[in-house]
Simulated assay, not measured.
Amino acid sequence: MLRLVMAVPDSQYASKLSRFLRESEPSWRIAAFTQEIALLRHLEEAPGTELLLLHSSFLPAIRAKADAGALRGRIVALAERPGAGEGLPEVAMYQPMSRLLTELTEHMHGDARKSGEAAGGAPLLTVFSAAGGCGKTALALNIARQAGERGYRVFYLNLEALNATDLLFGTGEADSLSRLLYALRTRPEDRATEELERLRRSEGRLRAEYFDAPDHPGERLAMTAEQLRELIGALRADGRYDLIVADADSGCGDWHLELLNLSARVVWMVMDDAQSLRKAEKLARYWMGKLPMDAGSVSFVLNKFSGAMKNEWRLPGKGPAGVLPYVPQWKAMAGLEGWFASPAFSGSVDRLLDEWGWPHRFSPELPAEGGGPYASFAAVGRRAR
């Protein structure tokens, strides 16, 4: 649960906003206040809030707190006019609800993208597992598709030694990745860029670009950690993408570890199966101290969840960071569209993208007034003033 504390002196506004946020983001725990004394008491008794959304009238009280320094970087001003936040990040008070929610989500989750961008270019999200058969490709494809639908420019990078995505996308240039890796190593930068432009493919149903699947596993099996760095660096430096989704082969080699360390988010998939959990536990212990698990960038996600765990959870955290339902139809699925036809699975992926910091980038044009979930705060603002 992500914790948001909001404080605004207008009780009608506070009630309307908190109700809309709870309905729109059930994974957020929201506390709303209209008086300074109640706000300060709550912050003393319940530390650890991810974000404080404060009307400008509450800022002096917060800054006077003895431990105000601990809140630095977590305060966003709810501003009635530009500049009312006194230098803090601002969210306009009177605007359509959905647009306000998008801005709040950016502040709540922005660190996930910034960590990747700070590394130089598009952030990398890697879907990984210690054991085969956990559903990595199904999840990676759905993440790429739904991120594309949210307005992100996505590259889907399949790194499996035995890559069967030619069943989904069709056959093409089977040695495309080998050619690109060779170009990155031996040719001037402009020639390598030309090769990348020639080899990438676009798939409208996926909402992403990709490389053709190889016929043989040799190019993936021979890949080194240095070659992987060059490949990810080229995709990031290209400037064409907002997100790279890597579909990684199961394994514990040097390039696997390098891939996970290059990632802004690692989605480590497991199943409620004794063998799957045990393999993940052993690999997590083997890589202890080599992965930024304590930084929160590794999320253990349980796939094919049946409603209650039968095995003991011994991986980092009190339990899985997310669960995905079992979709039996995929066993006989060959076409691409079928992989996106499960509402339950798509809904679970949507929730994970929200939690990991990739919200919808675009909001529809909304009316200035009216009821329903897309109502604006404009009318409330006029009454308040």
Rank of each mutant, 00 (worst) to 15 (best):
R19K: 10
R314E: 11
P214L: 06
S176A: 13
L125Y: 14
D294H: 15
P96R: 01
Y374W: 00
A140G: 11
D67E: 14
P359D: 02
K310Y: 07
L43I: 12
E160F: 09
F345V: 05
E230W: 02
G172C: 03
L141A: 05
Q95W: 03
L291T: 13
L206M: 03
Y13R: 06
R191I: 05
A164I: 07
G307S: 13
G319P: 10
A208W: 03
F377H: 14
L100N: 01
Y326I: 09
L17T: 03
L260D: 15
A344H: 10
T105N: 06
V245A: 06
L366D: 05
G148N: 02
G170K: 07
S348E: 11
M108W: 00
P47A: 15
N158C: 14
E86T: 07
G253S: 15
E189M: 03
Y286M: 15
G289I: 13
A61Y: 08
L257V: 14
R229C: 01
D273F: 12
A237P: 01
G133M: 04
E90I: 06
V266K: 11
L235A: 02
C252K: 14
G48W: 11
D350R: 07
F155S: 00
L231Y: 01
N142Q: 06
L124M: 08
Q275N: 14
R179D: 05
R229S: 04
D212R: 03
P292D: 14
A131G: 13
G239K: 07
L51D: 01
E195F: 05
N142M: 00
A31N: 13
E25L: 00
L88H: 01
A70C: 08
T126M: 14
R200M: 10
D273C: 12
A237E: 05
N311C: 12
P373N: 04
M271Y: 09
G233I: 02
G73R: 00
W358K: 06
I244F: 05
P320G: 12
E195V: 10
R205W: 02
F377Y: 14
G322H: 11
A246C: 15
A32W: 08
G120P: 05
I62P: 04
S129A: 13
R99T: 00
K282D: 14
A332Y: 09
A174H: 11
E23D: 02
G253M: 13
A118S: 13
L40R: 12
L180R: 00
D249A: 15
S56F: 06
D212Y: 04
A64M: 09
A384N: 12
G317W: 10
S348H: 09
M269Q: 15
A237F: 00
A225P: 10
H107T: 03
R150T: 05
P320R: 11
A222Q: 13
W268H: 15
L125P: 09
G307H: 13
P367V: 04
